[in-house]
Design a protein around this nucleic acid. Structure first.
Lengths: 209, 209
DNA sequence: TCACAAATGTGAAAAAAATAACAGCTTAAG
DNA sequence: CTTAAGCTGTTATTTTTTTCACATTTGTGA
Protein backbone atom coordinates (compact mmCIF):
# COMPACT_ATOMS: atom_id res chain seq x y z
CA UNK A 1 0.00 0.00 0.00
CA UNK A 2 1.11 3.52 -0.68
CA UNK A 3 2.09 5.11 2.60
CA UNK A 4 2.12 8.76 1.68
CA UNK A 5 3.87 10.37 -1.19
CA UNK A 6 5.00 13.99 -0.69
CA UNK A 7 2.97 16.38 -2.79
CA UNK A 8 5.97 17.70 -4.73
CA UNK A 9 6.80 14.12 -5.62
CA UNK A 10 3.26 13.53 -6.90
CA UNK A 11 3.60 16.52 -9.18
CA UNK A 12 6.93 15.35 -10.52
CA UNK A 13 5.64 11.83 -11.03
CA UNK A 14 2.71 13.23 -12.99
CA UNK A 15 5.10 15.07 -15.26
CA UNK A 16 7.18 11.95 -15.58
CA UNK A 17 4.11 9.98 -16.56
CA UNK A 18 3.44 12.42 -19.35
CA UNK A 19 7.03 12.17 -20.50
CA UNK A 20 6.86 8.38 -20.51
CA UNK A 21 3.68 8.42 -22.59
CA UNK A 22 5.50 10.43 -25.22
CA UNK A 23 8.60 8.31 -25.13
CA UNK A 24 6.50 5.23 -25.57
CA UNK A 25 4.85 6.71 -28.64
CA UNK A 26 8.25 7.60 -30.07
CA UNK A 27 9.29 4.00 -29.63
CA UNK A 28 11.87 4.60 -26.91
CA UNK A 29 12.33 1.41 -24.89
CA UNK A 30 14.48 2.38 -21.93
CA UNK A 31 15.68 5.50 -20.15
CA UNK A 32 17.99 6.28 -17.23
CA UNK A 33 17.26 8.47 -14.25
CA UNK A 34 19.93 10.83 -15.50
CA UNK A 35 18.22 11.30 -18.84
CA UNK A 36 14.85 11.78 -17.17
CA UNK A 37 16.36 14.39 -14.91
CA UNK A 38 17.72 16.32 -17.85
CA UNK A 39 14.39 16.30 -19.61
CA UNK A 40 12.39 17.33 -16.58
CA UNK A 41 15.01 19.66 -15.16
CA UNK A 42 15.39 17.89 -11.86
CA UNK A 43 18.27 15.86 -10.43
CA UNK A 44 18.70 12.17 -11.14
CA UNK A 45 18.66 11.64 -7.36
CA UNK A 46 15.23 13.14 -7.12
CA UNK A 47 13.95 11.03 -9.97
CA UNK A 48 15.06 7.80 -8.32
CA UNK A 49 13.79 8.93 -4.94
CA UNK A 50 10.37 9.76 -6.33
CA UNK A 51 10.13 6.39 -8.03
CA UNK A 52 11.15 4.67 -4.82
CA UNK A 53 8.03 6.00 -3.11
CA UNK A 54 6.04 3.68 -5.30
CA UNK A 55 7.43 0.71 -3.40
CA UNK A 56 7.62 -1.68 -6.23
CA UNK A 57 11.16 -2.23 -7.28
CA UNK A 58 12.16 -2.43 -10.88
CA UNK A 59 15.22 -4.50 -11.61
CA UNK A 60 18.04 -2.62 -9.96
CA UNK A 61 21.05 -1.82 -12.06
CA UNK A 62 19.29 -1.68 -15.37
CA UNK A 63 17.78 1.43 -16.89
CA UNK A 64 14.03 1.90 -16.58
CA UNK A 65 11.83 0.18 -19.10
CA UNK A 66 9.62 2.97 -20.40
CA UNK A 67 6.51 0.88 -20.63
CA UNK A 68 6.90 -0.77 -17.25
CA UNK A 69 7.64 2.44 -15.45
CA UNK A 70 4.70 4.14 -17.08
CA UNK A 71 2.45 1.34 -15.96
CA UNK A 72 3.84 1.41 -12.44
CA UNK A 73 3.19 5.13 -12.07
CA UNK A 74 -0.19 4.84 -13.74
CA UNK A 75 -1.22 2.07 -11.40
CA UNK A 76 0.13 3.74 -8.27
CA UNK A 77 -1.38 7.13 -8.96
CA UNK A 78 -4.53 5.64 -10.48
CA UNK A 79 -4.12 7.19 -13.91
CA UNK A 80 -5.42 3.97 -15.35
CA UNK A 81 -8.88 4.42 -13.91
CA UNK A 82 -10.16 7.17 -16.13
CA UNK A 83 -12.02 9.79 -14.12
CA UNK A 84 -14.85 11.80 -15.53
CA UNK A 85 -14.36 15.55 -15.87
CA UNK A 86 -16.40 18.55 -16.99
CA UNK A 87 -15.78 22.10 -18.12
CA UNK A 88 -17.77 24.94 -16.59
CA UNK A 89 -17.84 28.14 -18.63
CA UNK A 90 -17.63 27.86 -22.38
CA UNK A 91 -16.10 31.21 -23.22
CA UNK A 92 -12.86 31.30 -25.13
CA UNK A 93 -10.76 29.45 -22.60
CA UNK A 94 -13.42 26.93 -21.69
CA UNK A 95 -14.17 26.17 -25.32
CA UNK A 96 -10.48 25.77 -26.07
CA UNK A 97 -10.13 23.27 -23.25
CA UNK A 98 -13.19 21.42 -24.40
CA UNK A 99 -11.61 21.01 -27.81
CA UNK A 100 -8.60 19.34 -26.25
CA UNK A 101 -10.93 16.47 -25.59
CA UNK A 102 -8.48 14.02 -27.01
CA UNK A 103 -7.65 13.75 -23.33
CA UNK A 104 -8.92 10.21 -23.09
CA UNK A 105 -6.37 7.70 -22.00
CA UNK A 106 -4.47 10.18 -19.91
CA UNK A 107 -6.39 9.58 -16.75
CA UNK A 108 -9.61 11.45 -17.40
CA UNK A 109 -12.40 12.04 -19.85
CA UNK A 110 -14.30 15.24 -20.40
CA UNK A 111 -17.92 14.17 -20.54
CA UNK A 112 -19.88 17.42 -20.13
CA UNK A 113 -19.78 21.18 -20.54
CA UNK A 114 -21.79 23.92 -18.82
CA UNK A 115 -22.50 27.57 -19.50
CA UNK A 116 -24.98 30.09 -18.17
CA UNK A 117 -25.53 31.36 -21.69
CA UNK A 118 -27.99 28.98 -23.26
CA UNK A 119 -27.20 30.25 -26.74
CA UNK A 120 -23.61 29.10 -26.46
CA UNK A 121 -24.80 25.75 -25.27
CA UNK A 122 -26.93 25.45 -28.38
CA UNK A 123 -24.55 26.83 -30.99
CA UNK A 124 -21.28 25.27 -29.93
CA UNK A 125 -21.17 21.86 -31.53
CA UNK A 126 -18.91 19.80 -29.40
CA UNK A 127 -18.90 16.04 -29.33
CA UNK A 128 -20.08 15.89 -25.75
CA UNK A 129 -23.22 16.96 -23.94
CA UNK A 130 -23.64 20.61 -23.01
CA UNK A 131 -25.97 21.94 -20.32
CA UNK A 132 -27.04 25.24 -18.80
CA UNK A 133 -25.24 26.05 -15.54
CA UNK A 134 -28.13 25.53 -13.20
CA UNK A 135 -28.05 21.85 -14.06
CA UNK A 136 -24.53 21.40 -12.70
CA UNK A 137 -25.44 19.66 -9.42
CA UNK A 138 -27.79 17.24 -11.09
CA UNK A 139 -25.54 16.29 -14.00
CA UNK A 140 -22.40 16.02 -11.87
CA UNK A 141 -24.16 13.66 -9.50
CA UNK A 142 -25.92 11.58 -12.14
CA UNK A 143 -22.81 11.05 -14.24
CA UNK A 144 -20.38 10.60 -11.34
CA UNK A 145 -18.19 13.45 -12.53
CA UNK A 146 -15.21 13.85 -10.21
CA UNK A 147 -13.17 16.65 -11.74
CA UNK A 148 -14.06 20.08 -13.08
CA UNK A 149 -12.31 22.84 -14.96
CA UNK A 150 -13.77 26.16 -13.91
CA UNK A 151 -13.35 28.79 -16.62
CA UNK A 152 -16.00 31.39 -15.87
CA UNK A 153 -15.68 35.13 -15.14
CA UNK A 154 -14.51 35.89 -11.60
CA UNK A 155 -17.90 37.08 -10.41
CA UNK A 156 -19.60 33.80 -11.31
CA UNK A 157 -16.85 31.51 -10.02
CA UNK A 158 -18.02 31.08 -6.44
CA UNK A 159 -21.58 30.29 -7.47
CA UNK A 160 -20.43 27.67 -9.95
CA UNK A 161 -18.00 26.19 -7.46
CA UNK A 162 -20.81 25.85 -4.95
CA UNK A 163 -22.91 24.07 -7.52
CA UNK A 164 -20.08 21.69 -8.31
CA UNK A 165 -19.62 20.93 -4.64
CA UNK A 166 -23.33 20.33 -4.31
CA UNK A 167 -23.05 17.75 -7.06
CA UNK A 168 -20.24 16.00 -5.20
CA UNK A 169 -17.20 17.10 -7.20
CA UNK A 170 -13.82 16.00 -5.83
CA UNK A 171 -11.36 18.31 -7.56
CA UNK A 172 -11.46 21.67 -9.35
CA UNK A 173 -8.96 23.37 -11.62
CA UNK A 174 -9.81 27.02 -11.17
CA UNK A 175 -8.97 29.17 -14.19
CA UNK A 176 -10.88 32.17 -12.94
CA UNK A 177 -9.04 34.84 -11.02
CA UNK A 178 -11.43 34.47 -8.10
CA UNK A 179 -10.25 33.13 -4.76
CA UNK A 180 -12.65 30.32 -4.02
CA UNK A 181 -13.93 29.63 -0.55
CA UNK A 182 -14.44 25.94 -0.54
CA UNK A 183 -14.54 22.84 1.64
CA UNK A 184 -11.01 21.66 2.40
CA UNK A 185 -11.81 18.11 1.43
CA UNK A 186 -12.04 19.20 -2.20
CA UNK A 187 -8.75 19.50 -4.06
CA UNK A 188 -8.38 22.84 -5.79
CA UNK A 189 -5.67 23.93 -8.15
CA UNK A 190 -5.59 27.61 -9.06
CA UNK A 191 -4.35 28.55 -12.50
CA UNK A 192 -4.24 32.28 -12.92
CA UNK A 193 -2.19 33.95 -15.63
CA UNK A 194 -1.91 37.18 -13.71
CA UNK A 195 -0.67 35.32 -10.66
CA UNK A 196 1.86 33.36 -12.68
CA UNK A 197 3.15 36.51 -14.32
CA UNK A 198 3.38 38.23 -10.98
CA UNK A 199 5.35 35.37 -9.44
CA UNK A 200 7.73 35.33 -12.38
CA UNK A 201 8.12 39.06 -12.12
CA UNK A 202 8.99 38.77 -8.44
CA UNK A 203 11.46 35.97 -9.06
CA UNK A 204 13.18 38.00 -11.72
CA UNK A 205 13.42 40.96 -9.38
CA UNK A 206 14.87 38.95 -6.54
CA UNK A 207 17.26 37.06 -8.83
CA UNK A 208 18.82 40.36 -9.91
CA UNK A 209 19.54 40.73 -6.18
CA UNK B 1 17.92 44.56 1.54
CA UNK B 2 16.05 41.36 0.87
CA UNK B 3 18.26 38.42 1.71
CA UNK B 4 16.42 35.56 0.16
CA UNK B 5 12.76 34.76 0.41
CA UNK B 6 11.81 31.08 0.02
CA UNK B 7 10.05 30.45 -3.25
CA UNK B 8 6.87 29.13 -1.62
CA UNK B 9 6.75 32.33 0.38
CA UNK B 10 7.04 34.41 -2.78
CA UNK B 11 4.07 32.61 -4.24
CA UNK B 12 2.00 33.13 -1.13
CA UNK B 13 2.96 36.78 -0.95
CA UNK B 14 1.89 37.21 -4.57
CA UNK B 15 -1.49 35.75 -3.75
CA UNK B 16 -1.69 37.97 -0.70
CA UNK B 17 -0.92 40.99 -2.83
CA UNK B 18 -3.83 40.13 -5.07
CA UNK B 19 -6.10 39.72 -2.07
CA UNK B 20 -5.02 43.06 -0.66
CA UNK B 21 -5.72 44.79 -3.97
CA UNK B 22 -9.27 43.53 -3.82
CA UNK B 23 -9.76 44.37 -0.19
CA UNK B 24 -8.55 47.87 -0.87
CA UNK B 25 -11.09 48.26 -3.65
CA UNK B 26 -13.85 47.00 -1.36
CA UNK B 27 -12.87 49.65 1.13
CA UNK B 28 -11.54 47.29 3.80
CA UNK B 29 -9.06 49.13 5.99
CA UNK B 30 -7.45 46.49 8.17
CA UNK B 31 -7.12 42.73 8.38
CA UNK B 32 -5.55 40.23 10.77
CA UNK B 33 -3.21 37.39 9.93
CA UNK B 34 -5.91 35.00 11.00
CA UNK B 35 -8.43 36.39 8.53
CA UNK B 36 -5.84 36.38 5.76
CA UNK B 37 -5.07 32.78 6.54
CA UNK B 38 -8.69 31.81 6.26
CA UNK B 39 -9.07 33.53 2.92
CA UNK B 40 -5.90 32.06 1.44
CA UNK B 41 -6.22 28.70 3.13
CA UNK B 42 -2.92 28.84 4.97
CA UNK B 43 -2.12 29.18 8.66
CA UNK B 44 -1.92 32.53 10.41
CA UNK B 45 1.61 31.58 11.47
CA UNK B 46 2.67 31.22 7.89
CA UNK B 47 1.13 34.54 6.97
CA UNK B 48 3.07 36.37 9.65
CA UNK B 49 6.28 34.53 8.87
CA UNK B 50 6.01 35.35 5.18
CA UNK B 51 5.47 39.00 5.93
CA UNK B 52 8.42 38.99 8.30
CA UNK B 53 10.73 38.09 5.43
CA UNK B 54 10.12 41.56 4.07
CA UNK B 55 12.09 42.99 6.98
CA UNK B 56 10.13 46.09 7.47
CA UNK B 57 8.06 45.87 10.58
CA UNK B 58 4.56 47.11 10.73
CA UNK B 59 3.35 48.23 14.13
CA UNK B 60 3.21 45.12 16.27
CA UNK B 61 0.01 44.31 18.06
CA UNK B 62 -2.33 46.06 15.63
CA UNK B 63 -3.94 44.39 12.66
CA UNK B 64 -2.39 44.99 9.25
CA UNK B 65 -3.37 48.14 7.42
CA UNK B 66 -4.47 46.87 4.02
CA UNK B 67 -3.00 49.75 2.08
CA UNK B 68 0.34 49.77 3.90
CA UNK B 69 0.82 46.04 3.64
CA UNK B 70 -0.04 46.09 -0.03
CA UNK B 71 2.52 48.80 -0.61
CA UNK B 72 5.15 46.95 1.40
CA UNK B 73 4.73 43.76 -0.60
CA UNK B 74 4.53 45.68 -3.86
CA UNK B 75 7.73 47.51 -3.08
CA UNK B 76 9.60 44.42 -1.87
CA UNK B 77 8.61 42.18 -4.77
CA UNK B 78 8.81 45.01 -7.29
CA UNK B 79 5.19 44.88 -8.36
CA UNK B 80 5.26 48.64 -8.58
CA UNK B 81 7.69 48.70 -11.48
CA UNK B 82 5.46 47.53 -14.28
CA UNK B 83 7.20 44.99 -16.52
CA UNK B 84 6.42 44.60 -20.17
CA UNK B 85 4.90 41.34 -21.34
CA UNK B 86 3.78 39.77 -24.61
CA UNK B 87 1.55 36.94 -25.76
CA UNK B 88 2.84 34.44 -28.29
CA UNK B 89 0.16 32.48 -30.12
CA UNK B 90 -3.18 34.16 -30.72
CA UNK B 91 -5.41 31.12 -30.90
CA UNK B 92 -8.33 30.86 -28.51
CA UNK B 93 -6.34 30.86 -25.32
CA UNK B 94 -3.84 33.47 -26.44
CA UNK B 95 -6.57 35.79 -27.66
CA UNK B 96 -8.46 35.39 -24.41
CA UNK B 97 -5.38 36.32 -22.43
CA UNK B 98 -4.75 39.27 -24.66
CA UNK B 99 -8.23 40.54 -23.89
CA UNK B 100 -7.46 40.50 -20.21
CA UNK B 101 -5.23 43.43 -20.96
CA UNK B 102 -6.67 45.38 -18.12
CA UNK B 103 -3.65 43.93 -16.42
CA UNK B 104 -1.95 47.28 -16.02
CA UNK B 105 -1.24 48.28 -12.48
CA UNK B 106 -0.74 44.73 -11.35
CA UNK B 107 2.95 44.55 -12.08
CA UNK B 108 2.99 44.13 -15.84
CA UNK B 109 1.64 45.41 -19.12
CA UNK B 110 0.93 43.40 -22.23
CA UNK B 111 2.43 45.42 -25.05
CA UNK B 112 2.59 43.00 -27.98
CA UNK B 113 1.12 39.85 -29.49
CA UNK B 114 2.60 37.38 -31.95
CA UNK B 115 1.25 34.67 -34.22
CA UNK B 116 2.60 32.67 -37.10
CA UNK B 117 -0.69 33.11 -38.93
CA UNK B 118 -0.52 36.52 -40.55
CA UNK B 119 -4.26 36.57 -41.15
CA UNK B 120 -4.97 36.42 -37.45
CA UNK B 121 -2.54 39.20 -36.87
CA UNK B 122 -4.43 41.33 -39.36
CA UNK B 123 -7.98 40.48 -38.45
CA UNK B 124 -7.81 40.47 -34.67
CA UNK B 125 -8.31 44.02 -33.59
CA UNK B 126 -6.66 44.32 -30.24
CA UNK B 127 -5.54 47.57 -28.74
CA UNK B 128 -1.88 46.63 -28.87
CA UNK B 129 0.56 45.88 -31.65
CA UNK B 130 0.49 42.46 -33.26
CA UNK B 131 3.35 40.90 -35.22
CA UNK B 132 4.16 37.73 -37.14
CA UNK B 133 6.17 35.22 -35.10
CA UNK B 134 9.45 35.58 -36.90
CA UNK B 135 9.70 39.10 -35.54
CA UNK B 136 9.74 37.94 -31.92
CA UNK B 137 13.47 38.39 -31.26
CA UNK B 138 13.52 41.86 -32.76
CA UNK B 139 10.40 43.19 -31.06
CA UNK B 140 11.23 41.67 -27.68
CA UNK B 141 14.64 43.29 -27.74
CA UNK B 142 13.52 46.66 -29.06
CA UNK B 143 10.68 47.05 -26.62
CA UNK B 144 12.48 45.60 -23.62
CA UNK B 145 9.82 42.95 -23.09
CA UNK B 146 10.69 40.82 -20.08
CA UNK B 147 7.78 38.39 -19.74
CA UNK B 148 5.96 36.19 -22.23
CA UNK B 149 2.86 34.03 -22.23
CA UNK B 150 3.41 31.14 -24.61
CA UNK B 151 0.10 29.80 -25.93
CA UNK B 152 0.99 28.01 -29.14
CA UNK B 153 0.46 24.37 -30.19
CA UNK B 154 2.94 21.96 -28.64
CA UNK B 155 4.91 21.43 -31.82
CA UNK B 156 5.64 25.13 -32.21
CA UNK B 157 6.46 25.82 -28.58
CA UNK B 158 10.17 25.11 -28.58
CA UNK B 159 10.79 27.25 -31.66
CA UNK B 160 8.91 30.18 -30.18
CA UNK B 161 10.64 29.78 -26.85
CA UNK B 162 14.00 29.88 -28.59
CA UNK B 163 13.00 33.08 -30.34
CA UNK B 164 11.93 34.64 -27.07
CA UNK B 165 15.23 33.70 -25.49
CA UNK B 166 17.05 35.17 -28.44
CA UNK B 167 15.23 38.42 -27.82
CA UNK B 168 16.35 38.41 -24.20
CA UNK B 169 13.16 37.36 -22.42
CA UNK B 170 13.46 36.81 -18.66
CA UNK B 171 10.36 34.78 -17.83
CA UNK B 172 7.87 32.58 -19.68
CA UNK B 173 4.46 31.28 -18.68
CA UNK B 174 4.14 28.15 -20.79
CA UNK B 175 0.55 27.24 -21.64
CA UNK B 176 1.51 24.67 -24.23
CA UNK B 177 1.76 21.06 -23.21
CA UNK B 178 5.33 20.89 -24.51
CA UNK B 179 8.23 20.38 -22.15
CA UNK B 180 10.56 23.24 -22.97
CA UNK B 181 14.31 22.83 -22.99
CA UNK B 182 15.54 26.19 -21.97
CA UNK B 183 18.39 28.06 -20.28
CA UNK B 184 18.12 27.75 -16.52
CA UNK B 185 18.55 31.46 -16.02
CA UNK B 186 15.13 32.04 -17.51
CA UNK B 187 12.18 31.59 -15.17
CA UNK B 188 9.57 29.25 -16.59
CA UNK B 189 6.17 28.45 -15.18
CA UNK B 190 4.30 25.58 -16.80
CA UNK B 191 0.53 25.75 -16.92
CA UNK B 192 -0.97 22.63 -18.37
CA UNK B 193 -4.59 21.68 -17.87
CA UNK B 194 -3.95 18.01 -18.43
CA UNK B 195 -1.16 18.06 -15.88
CA UNK B 196 -3.30 19.87 -13.33
CA UNK B 197 -6.13 17.42 -13.83
CA UNK B 198 -3.75 14.52 -13.51
CA UNK B 199 -2.28 15.86 -10.28
CA UNK B 200 -5.74 16.42 -8.83
CA UNK B 201 -6.74 12.94 -9.90
CA UNK B 202 -3.71 11.49 -8.13
CA UNK B 203 -4.34 13.48 -4.99
CA UNK B 204 -7.93 12.30 -4.88
CA UNK B 205 -6.80 8.71 -5.27
CA UNK B 206 -4.25 8.93 -2.52
CA UNK B 207 -6.59 10.83 -0.22
CA UNK B 208 -9.07 7.94 -0.37
CA UNK B 209 -6.18 5.95 1.08
C1' DT C 1 -6.22 54.92 34.12
C1' DC C 2 -5.86 50.14 34.29
C1' DA C 3 -6.53 45.52 33.06
C1' DC C 4 -7.39 42.31 29.66
C1' DA C 5 -8.32 40.32 25.24
C1' DA C 6 -6.34 40.14 20.86
C1' DA C 7 -2.53 41.01 17.67
C1' DT C 8 2.08 40.92 15.78
C1' DG C 9 7.26 39.67 15.01
C1' DT C 10 10.67 36.53 15.38
C1' DG C 11 14.02 33.11 17.25
C1' DA C 12 13.78 28.21 18.13
C1' DA C 13 12.03 23.57 17.33
C1' DA C 14 10.01 20.32 14.33
C1' DA C 15 8.86 18.48 10.00
C1' DA C 16 9.46 17.90 5.24
C1' DA C 17 12.09 17.67 1.19
C1' DA C 18 16.23 17.63 -1.50
C1' DT C 19 20.69 15.93 -1.94
C1' DA C 20 24.38 12.82 -1.36
C1' DA C 21 26.55 8.35 -0.61
C1' DC C 22 27.06 3.79 -1.39
C1' DA C 23 26.04 -1.28 -1.73
C1' DG C 24 24.72 -4.32 -5.07
C1' DC C 25 22.95 -5.53 -9.67
C1' DT C 26 23.41 -5.46 -14.97
C1' DT C 27 25.29 -5.12 -19.28
C1' DA C 28 28.91 -5.11 -22.57
C1' DA C 29 33.55 -5.75 -24.08
C1' DG C 30 37.72 -8.15 -24.18
C1' DC D 1 34.62 -16.05 -18.14
C1' DT D 2 35.97 -12.00 -16.00
C1' DT D 3 36.28 -7.28 -15.40
C1' DA D 4 34.88 -2.64 -15.60
C1' DA D 5 31.70 0.92 -16.25
C1' DG D 6 27.26 2.39 -15.42
C1' DC D 7 22.86 2.28 -13.16
C1' DT D 8 19.36 1.61 -9.52
C1' DG D 9 17.27 1.42 -4.62
C1' DT D 10 17.68 3.01 -0.26
C1' DT D 11 19.65 4.73 3.90
C1' DA D 12 21.91 8.77 5.79
C1' DT D 13 22.81 13.68 5.72
C1' DT D 14 21.95 18.29 4.84
C1' DT D 15 19.05 21.96 3.65
C1' DT D 16 14.73 24.18 3.38
C1' DT D 17 10.23 25.18 5.01
C1' DT D 18 6.70 25.06 8.28
C1' DT D 19 5.05 25.29 12.79
C1' DC D 20 5.31 26.69 17.43
C1' DA D 21 5.95 29.58 21.49
C1' DC D 22 6.18 33.70 23.65
C1' DA D 23 7.69 38.51 24.56
C1' DT D 24 5.77 42.68 23.26
C1' DT D 25 2.33 45.94 21.53
C1' DT D 26 -2.38 47.75 20.64
C1' DG D 27 -7.19 48.79 21.47
C1' DT D 28 -11.23 48.66 24.43
C1' DG D 29 -14.37 48.95 28.21
C1' DA D 30 -15.12 49.67 33.04
Amino acid sequence: MIHSIPEPAIKRLSALYQLLCRLEKSGVQAISSKEIGERLDISAHTVRKDISYLREAQISGARYTVQKLKELIGRSLKFTTSRKACVVGLGKIGAAILNYSRFGGYGFDIVAGFDSNVNIVETLNADMDLFPSYMIPEVVTDRSIELAVLAVPADAAQLCADRLVKGGIKGIVNFSSALLTIDKKIAVSDVDVTKELRVLSAMISLADR
